[in-house]
């Protein structure tokens, strides 16, 4: 559909505004994906964060510092993963004729992964991610160090739970490395929203409505990616 702007702004539609436009596009999609898959991140990372936060001295400031460190390190893990998957993705040349097949197929896979996530929360595979049981015990130390939060954050950041893989395959198909990094940064923001309630010791986990809404969002996004992928494949079949 055509996007119509105020006519006076049309002459200023320069490279800069186009860049902002595409940034908004990445941001919206990545943010939606992050928000939708946030609860599964909680299921994956929650067992690590909760005991860690519980053993911290009481006080909002301490908890904020620890959570910030955890999230910052998690972001580092995300960006590292984004760089890795994009490097792998860019190996496929743009002119390759099968790119539409790959794109359509990827979107269908993405839809499938989101359906699996929505149907089976918490997904059993998350239990086998890098943030699983053994790391929970790090938080048991009576005198935890700040590096502990950072270590936990980084390790949970690179775990391979389904939503993370979904974002990974999407980032791999982006045109440039900065795009992939921006995509993961916004995906991170979306998922991080779900971590905020840890400051008051996991309010979200006690609100089933929020989790239900997130699962519904995942199903709707799955439908979207499913239709989008199917349309790409159909156009490829019809027009070649």
């Amino acid at each position: 559909m055509t996007t119509v702007t105020d006519n006076s702004s049309l002459p200023h539609y320069t490279a800069r505004s186009m860049a902002i436009h595409s940034l908004s596009a990445f941001a919206g999609e990545a943010l939606a994906l992050g928000l939708a898959t946030g609860p599964v991140c909680l299921a994956s990372c929650g067992p690590v964060v909760l005991p860690w936060m519980l053993v911290q001295p009481r006080g909002l400031r301490t908890h904020s510092t620890q959570l910030s460190l955890f999230l910052a390190a998690r972001l580092a893990g995300y960006l590292l993963f984004a760089a890795a998957v994009w490097t792998a993705g860019s190996a496929i040349p743009h002119a390759w004729v099968g790119r539409s097949w790959l794109l359509g197929g990827t979107q269908l896979l993405l839809a499938g992964a989101l359906f699996v996530y929505a149907a089976g929360f918490p997904h059993p595979r998350c239990a086998r991610s890098a943030s699983a049981a053994p790391l929970v015990h790090i938080g048991d130390s009576p005198h935890p160090r700040r590096s502990g939060a950072a270590t936990l954050g980084f390790l949970t950041g690179i775990n391979l739970c389904p939503p993370f893989l979904v974002a990974g395959v999407r980032a791999a198909l982006l045109a440039t490395l900065p795009s992939a990094l921006i995509y993961f940064a916004f995906f991170f923001i979306g998922t991080s929203v779900w971590f905020a309630p840890f400051l008051s010791l996991s309010v979200v986990r006690r609100t089933p409505s929020l989790v239900t809404v997130a699962r519904m969002v995942a199903v709707l996004l799955a439908c979207w990616y499913g239709v989008s992928g199917a349309l790409i494949l159909m156009e490829k079949v019809v027009y070649g």
């Binding site: 996007t3 596009a25 990445f26 919206g28 943010l31 939606a32």
Partner: peptide, 14 residues
């Protein structure tokens, strides 16, 4: 859920 999806996708796809 629909509100979140349409707002986010509308922003993404303009």
């Amino acid at each position: 859920a629909l509100l979140i999806v349409v707002v986010a996708l509308s922003a993404a796809l303009m």
